[in-house]
Structure formats: C-alpha cells, structure tokens
Computed example of a mutant assay.
Amino acid sequence: MALILVTGASSGLGYNTAKALADDGHDVVTHVRDRARLTGAEDTARWKGVLTGDLADLEQVREIARQAGEFGHFDAAIHNAGTMRAPEAGTVNAVTPYLLTALLDKPARLIYLSSSMHRTGSTDLRRLAAGTATYDDSKLWVTTLALAFTSRWEGTSSHAVDPGWVPTRMGGPGAPDDLTAGHETQVWLATHHEATPSTGGYWYHRQMQPPHPACRDEEFQARLIRTLETHTGVPLA
C-alpha cells in the first residue's frame, strides 16, 4: 500500500486516477481547488485526506504543500491539475508543479501530466515572467521539468505522461481518445516497478514516445530550473 498525492482530483482524469488508486487499496490524498466540488459523501470518505487551494496562486500553493506535509512522506505524487486558460496556464501547468516538488519531502515517484501539444510549445522562458505563456508552452516546460528531475535526485523516478485528448470538462465531449486509458498510465507508473525505462520516460498509454527534443536538452533543463527558482523564490534542493 502506497501513500499517493493527486492534484486536480475533483473531476476528470484526476478524479479517475485517484479513484482507481483508492480502489486498489492505496492511501490517496487528493487536492481540489474548492472543497464544495466534493458533492457526495463517498467523495471524501474514500480519500486519506483532501488538500484545498488555488494552484494559480503561489501563496496558496505554499499552503497546499504545508497541508500535504501533515501526511508525511509520499510514495508518489501525480501532478495532474491543469488548465488551458491564459494567463493561468503557465502558473498552474508548470510553475506550480515545480513549486510543489521543491517544497514537498521528495516522493519516490514523480509523475507529471503533459500533452501532445507540448511539441508546439516555445522555449522562450521570458513568457513565464511576462504571464504570456500558452498552454503548449506550459506543457513543454512541465515535460522538460519531469525529465530534468531524473538526474537530480538519486532514488527518485520521474516521468511525463500524455493522457491523450480525452472527453473531460477540459477536453470536451467530442474528444476522440479513451477516457479510461487516460488515467491508467499514471496509476501504473505510481504503483508498479516494471516500467522501462524506470525513470525519464515520456509515455502515452503505457508506451514510450519521443518528446520535443528540448525536453532532453540539459542546457534548457538547467535554464528552466533557474527561471523557476527565480520566479518562485524557492531553490531546488
């Protein structure tokens, strides 16, 4: 049994991921922006705990990290939360996953939600401070972040996952990919040991895919982390 954090778990992929993990017997701590989104008794009873806060507000992200710390050391953290809205996309999709990772006691497994749209993102990191990052930019950056962590902390695995274009509130009802397959890779990476490679993968439906070349560029990885450290005021240990 593992202790696992899932962000953005009030609905869609995050909820399905958290539910699948809980149904498998794991202790799941979920994050939601507003506790009122948990409308049924079973929505709270099935979780080990619920963290609340707005991931677009970095002060609230710090408070979410404090709440998470009360549960001890996580075996895995799944950074699922995301938005396509500008200007929040850069913060929610890239800055917040960095900040939570930097503030938490390092989980053994880190999993970050990416998108195939990361391949059309920009490496111009000035967009982050300017608040002009697009969804594509943010997903390029978080994918780079996921792959950068593979060489920074011994004993911690880190992966990026493209869940596909699935019919969630963000994806829309006409999205063509399978909703169930959209969360299965995250659950697998968080709880199993047979993934190859064991760290540094970019996954789509449990199959390795080539990410944008910038994601594996060590110079860009370092530049991204320096930018995030400056932006948040929190250095990466």
Rank of each mutant, 00 (worst) to 15 (best):
V6Q: 01
G8V: 11
S10F: 01
G12I: 13
N16F: 10
A18N: 02
A20R: 07
D24I: 00
G25M: 04
G25D: 13
V29T: 13
R37A: 14
L38M: 14
G40T: 14
E42D: 15
D43S: 07
W47E: 13
K48L: 05
G49P: 00
V50M: 09
G53V: 12
D54Y: 10
R62G: 05
R66N: 08
Q67Y: 01
A68C: 02
A76T: 04
H79M: 15
H79W: 12
N80H: 06
N80F: 09
T83V: 00
M84W: 09
A86L: 14
E88H: 14
V92A: 02
V92R: 03
N93L: 04
A94E: 01
Y98K: 00
L100P: 04
P107D: 10
P107H: 00
R109E: 01
L110V: 13
L110S: 05
Y112A: 07
H118E: 09
T120M: 11
S122H: 01
L125N: 06
L128Y: 02
A129E: 15
A129G: 04
A130H: 10
A133M: 12
D136S: 14
L145I: 08
T150Q: 15
R152L: 08
G155Q: 12
A160C: 05
W165E: 06
T168D: 13
M170W: 08
M170R: 08
G172R: 10
P173S: 01
P176W: 04
T180Q: 15
T180P: 04
T180G: 06
A181V: 07
A181S: 13
G182P: 02
W188Q: 12
A190Y: 13
H193V: 03
T196G: 08
G200C: 11
G200A: 06
Y204D: 07
Y204M: 10
Y204R: 15
R206A: 10
Q207I: 02
P211D: 09
F220R: 10
Q221L: 11
G233V: 00
P235S: 02
